[in-house]
Structures are given as structure tokens and as C-alpha cells.
Lab assay of single mutants.
Amino acid sequence: EADPRLIESLSQMLSMGFSDEGGWLTRLLQTKNYDIGAALDTIQYSKHPPPL
């Protein structure tokens, strides 16, 4: 049985245009305790590393 928090967070992320191919988004949301903001921060950080 999927956690209702996961279903809600995942559906919101999917509606933003993200995909869960391979389950990466599910794993990220689980790691971030279903916090969409924290997940988005992680995605943003990985796409744009800080300048040295």
C-alpha cells in the first residue's frame, strides 16, 4: 500500500511536468519525507551547481 503522502506529493510533482521514470522521483520524495519544496531544491541544486 502506497503512503498517501507519497501519492499526493508525486501527483503534484507529475502535474508540474516531472516524470517518475525508473522511480527516481518516488525515491527522492521518500528521502525528503514527501516535502515537495525540499525535492525541488535538490533537483535545482543538481542542475545548477554553485559557482566556484
Results as ranks from 00 to 15, higher is better:
17 G>E: 00
12 Q>M: 10
7 I>V: 11
37 G>C: 11
31 T>E: 10
9 S>R: 08
30 Q>Y: 06
23 G>D: 02
20 D>S: 01
8 E>Q: 11
7 I>K: 11
39 A>T: 12
48 H>L: 15
8 E>D: 13
41 D>Y: 06
44 Q>V: 08
50 P>M: 12
13 M>P: 01
33 N>H: 12
2 A>K: 11
51 P>K: 10
31 T>M: 13
33 N>G: 10
5 R>V: 04
43 I>Y: 03
16 M>W: 07
20 D>R: 00
31 T>N: 06
31 T>H: 10
2 A>N: 10
50 P>T: 11
33 N>T: 04
41 D>C: 08
1 E>F: 04
48 H>P: 14
51 P>C: 13
12 Q>H: 13
28 L>H: 05
31 T>F: 07
42 T>C: 12
46 S>R: 14
2 A>W: 07
16 M>I: 06
4 P>M: 09
41 D>H: 12
24 W>G: 09
17 G>F: 01
45 Y>K: 14
2 A>G: 15
13 M>G: 04
41 D>S: 12
10 L>E: 03
48 H>Q: 15
52 L>D: 11
48 H>F: 13
23 G>A: 05
36 I>E: 05
49 P>A: 12
14 L>Y: 06
37 G>S: 15
36 I>W: 05
18 F>R: 02
38 A>V: 08
26 T>W: 00
29 L>N: 02
33 N>F: 01
25 L>S: 01
4 P>H: 07
9 S>T: 11
34 Y>E: 03
24 W>S: 10
23 G>F: 00
11 S>M: 08
34 Y>K: 04
21 E>C: 06
21 E>Y: 04
52 L>S: 13
29 L>P: 03
35 D>V: 03
35 D>N: 15
5 R>A: 08
23 G>M: 04
15 S>N: 15
39 A>I: 05
43 I>V: 10
24 W>F: 11
41 D>N: 10
20 D>E: 01
28 L>I: 08
4 P>Y: 06
46 S>P: 12
46 S>C: 11
42 T>E: 13
28 L>S: 04
43 I>Q: 02
43 I>D: 03
29 L>T: 02
3 D>G: 03
44 Q>F: 11
50 P>A: 13
41 D>I: 05
17 G>C: 00
7 I>Y: 09
5 R>G: 07
27 R>T: 10
24 W>D: 11
33 N>I: 00
23 G>C: 04
30 Q>C: 09
16 M>K: 08
8 E>L: 09
6 L>S: 04
21 E>G: 04
13 M>E: 01
5 R>W: 01
38 A>Q: 08
16 M>G: 03
13 M>D: 01
32 K>A: 08
14 L>V: 12
31 T>K: 11
12 Q>R: 11
13 M>N: 04
16 M>H: 08
21 E>M: 02
32 K>Y: 13
46 S>D: 13
17 G>L: 00
15 S>G: 14
52 L>C: 15
42 T>I: 08
25 L>Y: 06
38 A>M: 10
20 D>I: 00
18 F>W: 09
37 G>P: 11
17 G>M: 00
49 P>Y: 15
12 Q>E: 14
43 I>P: 04
17 G>I: 00
24 W>P: 04
32 K>G: 04
1 E>A: 09
25 L>G: 01
35 D>Q: 01
18 F>G: 01
28 L>A: 04
28 L>T: 08
31 T>Q: 14
21 E>V: 05
40 L>C: 06
43 I>L: 12
14 L>M: 14
14 L>K: 14
46 S>F: 05
21 E>L: 02
12 Q>P: 01
27 R>H: 07
41 D>K: 15
13 M>I: 04
1 E>D: 03
44 Q>S: 13
8 E>F: 09
18 F>M: 07
47 K>D: 13
41 D>M: 07
22 G>I: 00
33 N>P: 00
45 Y>C: 14
43 I>K: 03
28 L>F: 06
45 Y>I: 15
29 L>K: 02
36 I>P: 06
3 D>L: 02
22 G>Y: 01
51 P>A: 12
3 D>I: 02
45 Y>N: 15
9 S>A: 12
36 I>Y: 05
11 S>F: 02
3 D>C: 02
6 L>A: 08
49 P>V: 11
11 S>I: 06
9 S>Y: 03
33 N>S: 08
31 T>D: 15
45 Y>S: 15
42 T>W: 11
3 D>Y: 01
33 N>E: 10
10 L>D: 01
31 T>C: 09
44 Q>C: 08
